[in-house]
Nucleic acid binder design. Structure first.
Lengths: 328, 328
DNA sequence: GTCGGTAGTGTAAACGATTACATTATTTAT
DNA sequence: ATAAATAATGTAATCGTTTACACTACCGAC
């Protein structure tokens, strides 16, 4: 492998000079610079990132820790983060926790050991910032799920407001017997549940049911099947994430009920299939691109100025009203 | 930061001994081992992976380079690779090329510079193994898209056979005027096109149309809209990937044609929405889990034995016949 | 003309591990 | 009892960079 020594020799300078030319962080005579750059090009030299990282105690990598990359929401976030990082010359290490706190800790440690410049992550329910040893050592930005701490940057959705809007949309369209399905793995489910209940209360309605379940298609399907086979079945199903939405939608279909006249289905997150099914499904769309970008920008800000006071950015979801809640 | 020196001091041994205990690669007296492990635990020591990687010239990371993580096929692969790597104590660096050869090269270089143990990737159309400088230096396994080289490990689908089966399924169900939409960004599109044409020929049929287009929902939509508005419109649309399928499906809907009696829609890759739309869509399902696992295993084999003769594993897709091709 | 400042470069010490080589202690073989 | 082998550990070189410190050369100010 060609190292900085080879370049130095070829250019007739010291390794320090080569390093300075490449890092651009010191005055160098123009003529020397050219000689060095020529040697770099001739030898096709690329600096060893590992050595650089060891010496400089930092790297041009950031970590992204999410619960499941197969969830389209996180996929979109991942893509946005990667693009934003790429523009700054950073690359992204992506990790799945599976909502498992042990895996989460393992990956956070790993990222720390890898000398990442910072981490963007959506914590599991059990994550406790206080018990973590690295919390002071590694800049990070929390996304999607609030944690109880006011000295960490966060990028969140206004979940209560979004759920309120979605619920009110149902009510306005004539639905009165609502049931809610909420993911039990994160704070977002809880917040969305709050907005759901608040909207109902404000309209003098009581929910038929509200279940906290594992955020899986299968769970959404089974719970909805149960709900729809009861004598006092709901006329609208509110779901708090796209996997539950898919399950609920399938259940409505399999129950041979008409959507939206027999039962409405609404949920969170725009997906490939949301507009493709018939009727298309009403959702709150999260600004994934913006969430990813903002998180990345906040992270870079914190990396540059670690003492900056923490910011929480709250973004708004937007209601995409479609056929699945079109009224009776 | 606590380093190996601190541990050595605390345990009253040399750094070499600590390293040996941790790497488990030399005889150590049981009593010494315990002292060291106690010191490690007391100090909460974790080895610095960067330093280890620099010295040992290798790391416990593998790279995964795909064209777009938002494609559910690659997401599933990514997840499978990550799980398989995790079991071996490896972590995964995931990169998007966007089908851009420049980005592809950049990432391959980056991974090389990061000292990854190996790379799994789906090459862009333009990728030329011969021009790459690292081809000998870094083990890799190609997935999804064949390249013309017989000294590299590959995990592929039998695309011709799968496309043949899917096409024949259409023919058997009474469709005679088929049109094909194929992705133009990879060899898979070409291979699937071959199977498509072969099946038609074997049944004495000629295709209405066969288009190579960008593998995007939008392109699939537009092309299908065009096809369906022609006087001699096809009675079946064959698509070579799930994004095209989504576009075609939407177009059929918007053309106010009945699926499957007016027009059948079939494609590749099982998705969340495939079973959710009405009628559900007939697809060839790829064994993503198996592809990811196999690729990871091949990679580990090659890492351990770089001179092993290369293997190409060809997996079979399985036809999931559903309503969208149910006959006229 | 001397002094202080800065531009331009080199020397060598880090960074934190692994490991070749050297050394001593302990078995085992004869 | 002694040589040979092996176990157990230490010393120091090494991986490829960055960077603190030292040095020279030149410039402008007094």
């Amino acid at each position: 492998m060609t190292s900085i020594k080879d370049v130095a020799k070829a250019a007739g300078v010291s390794t320090a000079t080569v390093s300075r030319v490449l890092a651009n962080n010191a005055p160098i005579k123009a003529e020397t610079r050219e000689r060095v750059l020529k040697a770099v090009a001739d030898l096709n030299y690329r600096p060893n990132l590992i050595a650089r990282s060891l010496r400089a105690q930092k790297s041009a990598k950031i970590g992204l820790v999410v619960s499941d990359i197969r969830n389209p929401f996180f996929t979109a976030i991942g893509r946005a983060v990667e693009d934003a990082a790429y523009e700054q010359g950073y690359s992204v290490l992506m990790c799945n926790t599976d909502e498992d706190p042990a895996k989460e800790e393992l990956y956070l440690n790993l990222l720390y050991d890898e000398n990442v410049a910072g981490v963007i992550f959506s914590p599991t329910h059990q994550f406790n910032i206080a018990t973590q040893t690295y919390n002071q050592k590694m800049p990070f930005v929390v996304i999607d799920r609030a944690i109880e701490s006011n000295d960490v940057d966060m990028v969140l959705l206004d979940n209560v407001a979004a759920a309120y809007e979605l619920t009110e949309h149902l009510i306005n369209n004539g639905y009165k017997n609502l049931a809610g399905l909420f993911g039990d793995a994160s704070t977002t489910g809880q917040e969305r549940s709050r907005g759901f209940h608040k909207a109902l209360k404000d309209h003098q309605l009581t929910p038929i049911a509200a279940h906290f379940i594992a955020p899986r298609i299968q769970q959404g399907y089974e719970t909805t099947m149960n709900l729809l086979s009861q004598p006092n079945r709901p006329d609208a199903i509110f779901t708090s994430n796209s996997l539950l939405t898919a399950g609920a939608y399938q259940a409505a279909r399999d129950s041979r009920l008409n959507v939206p006249t027999d039962v409405a289905i609404v949920g969170f997150d725009e997906t490939t299939w949301g507009a493709l099914v018939d009727p298309p499904v009403t959702v709150i769309e999260q600004p994934t691109e913006e969430i990813g970008r903002t998180a990345t920008e906040l992270l870079f800000q914190r990396i540059q100025e670690p003492s900056r006071s923490p910011k929480t950015v709250i973004l708004k979801g937007s209601l995409i009203a479609r056929g699945s809640s079109g009224g009776k």
